[in-house]
Design a protein around this nucleic acid. Structure first.
Lengths: 225, 225
DNA sequence: CCAAAAGTGTTCCGTCTACACCCATGG
DNA sequence: CCATGGGTGTAGACGGAACACTTTTGG
């Protein structure tokens, strides 16, 4: 069995997580300063090596769980990055994954424990190695998918106002959206359901809270926004 | 420098090429029977291991070159596949790449030398390991991109008739397209240029040959079809 | 009472779709 | 002369974009 394999060389494989959050009308990224060589001290995505007993997806979920304590998170593979010298220490090929989480679900204590921070996407610093390329590709994918897949809800609490939802779209697409046209489209989507709850935090008048009905969506998986 | 790396395990990394061609109104895939264990004799994509001195993209291009003798081919990464047992022999993570080539550019002699064949996409057999998943993902990407990127020309000779071009779109999208509407759109695209040449092979009357002007496209990279 | 956010319809314009006939030619 | 594929225009439907005012209420 160990036949032709031996002629070839093995390499390290890691996963890097591009973790998007949304707060205050802005897309945010969870990044930290590297605590190891090479690249100690530079801003970096959070990552980890793929171990023998886990698939790539499993590794990405494990790394995300280690950092955030969250499971069953929206995660998509962004792509494999494999320039020869992308890691100055050893040959390491890395698979980038993109995760969308609700910032409110994230335990603030962990921010300090792991020494990571939420940084506005627009103010993203230079990151370690090719991590900026990973982020760029992730955003490109996100923009492409946000209109054809119900992604956006992953960045919000279970219940949200239409204004919040609109802000998510605006942040991802990077452009203003007309309020009336947006709401018209939303009303046509049957699995975005109005609840009887009202949010009085951001407005004096109060805004109706909506909910994404995942089961209804799965029953009729058409999405267009 | 060899510090924390050692705690982790290395794995083999390979690339697999999903090579699309177009002939006789059909999308075709270049596949062969595996000539090695594990999986000897089963239909398979053409692949190879990533070596120390090459990036992932380089490896994919080398593998494609070894098989076809072609360089500077349209190639896009499809994604990384890393289920634990996807290769029954050893842990191997594979990066799938999608290539589009003009079947006419492919030396028929190489077909036999490498024992590979063009197979209609619709008649694709069960492939080794997760190769069918790779193909499925490649097609999904292709469908998504074909309307927003000038891919289709890679599947045709330098000069082509509008009917041929339409057949390419129909094959990729898997649905019939109205001839008049299609030609109307094409005429609006300034970098699809009519030449003075006429193709008399497929019709008695003769069909005008067109050419994709890459420089004109790059000068104004908008594409919508 | 006023600032701040929520909520609500209509019109216009451009784009997509459906659809059928004549043309040129080689065999 | 006819079978085969090449080539052409129009009308109606539909969806997207632009656009402004009223409502509620906490401070």
């Amino acid at each position: 069995m160990t036949t032709f394999y031996n002629e070839h060389s093995k390499v390290f494989v890691s996963v890097d997580c591009i973790i998007f959050g949304f707060e205050n009308k802005k897309l945010k990224l969870l990044i930290g300063k590297r605590k190891m060589d090479p690249g100690r001290g530079s801003w970096s995505l959070y990552g980890g090596f793929v171990e023998k007993d886990e698939s790539l997806d499993d590794a990405a979920n494990r790394v995300l769980y280690q950092l955030t304590g969250l499971k069953d998170i929206y995660m998509k593979q962004v792509g494999a990055f494999g320039a020869i010298d992308r890691d100055p220490g050893e040959r390491v090929i890395s698979i980038a994954y993109c995760a969308l989480i609700n910032v409110k679900d994230y335990d603030k204590g962990l921010l300090e424990a792991h020494e990571v921070e939420w940084v506005n996407l627009e103010e993203l610093p230079d990151l370690y190695s090719d991590h900026n390329d990973m982020v760029d590709k992730a955003i490109t994918l996100l923009r492409r998918r946000v209109s054809s897949e119900p992604l956006s809800f992953n960045l919000l609490p279970d219940m949200f106002t239409l204004t919040q939802l609109q802000h998510v779209y605006e942040a991802i697409l990077g452009e203003a959206i007309d309020k009336r046209n947006f709401r018209k489209k939303i009303k046509a989507v049957e699995y975005i359901e109005k609840t009887d709850f009202v949010d009085k935090v951001t407005s004096k008048r109060g805004a109706a809270l909506y909910r994404f009905n995942k089961d209804a969506y799965l029953a009729d998986s058409t999405f267009k926004l």
